[in-house]
Amino acid sequence: MKPIDLSLFGAKGAIVEAAEGKWGMAIDQDLCTGCQACVVACAMENNVPFVGEIDAGYGRSMHWIRIERFWEGEYPEIRMTPYRPMLCQQCGNAPCEPVCPAYATVHSQSERINLQVYNRCVGTRYCANNCPYQVRSFNWRDYTDERVNDAIATLKNQYNPDVTVRRRGVMEKCTFCIQRIHRAQDRAKAEGREVQDGEFAPACAQACPADAIVFGRIDDLRSRVSRLIRQKHGVHYLEELGTQPRVTYLVGGAS
């Protein structure tokens, strides 16, 4: 029997892609020291704005990656759970995609990640509601407008020209540093070769001092990331929802 091609039904936004995906990430929670280097690196790379004390404390911080931790037990038998960097899982079957009425969050057919098309976004915030990982952040105010935040007048000099600067009313989220993917692919293509494993990494993985974040092709069995995620102690959070996350967490450490 032939498999059913879902795209025949025009299921473009919500298409359930082949199980293997393309780009993926492995995060070793045993190595993560919670140092926040990834958080800042991501913000610096992706022009993520800061929101100020009050908004940040009210659940409006714009981090694309956050480091979670919980407690177990009570003093003195208290333990902190391993730090868990939580970022967009680039689900193969993403709950955020079908609910957007404007097709502003769509699945990239070529890179097999979830795109957020800022200029198409009208700000219904349905995607963020529907994201089981709660990793989408919304531009609640014009944080990047120097008329609103005059510090931007000089700070904007560090803006990355490869990444759109978002204004109020637009949803955003981790893109797996798609600008770096494109740059690497473009360079490889210009040189007439394939992108090598480890040739580039998203900002978080590149900064991580503990080497806890590894990025690469998960459809290539020889890549470092796919070797890592085939280890026994890899988990996909909330995979019971059928989201097919592309970020694998390694828990429990070696041996």
């Binding site: 280097a37 000089t154 900064a207």
Partner: peptide, 28 residues
């Protein structure tokens, strides 16, 4: 635009900490 670690450098081998990443916010 962006600060990364120097992969050849013996101290940090291409990695940075959060403060190093934010050094541009001092520059600008």
């Amino acid at each position: 635009i962006k600060v990364e670690g120097n992969p050849a450098h013996p101290v940090n081998r291409g990695k940075t900490c959060a403060r190093g990443q934010a050094t541009l916010q001092g520059l600008y």
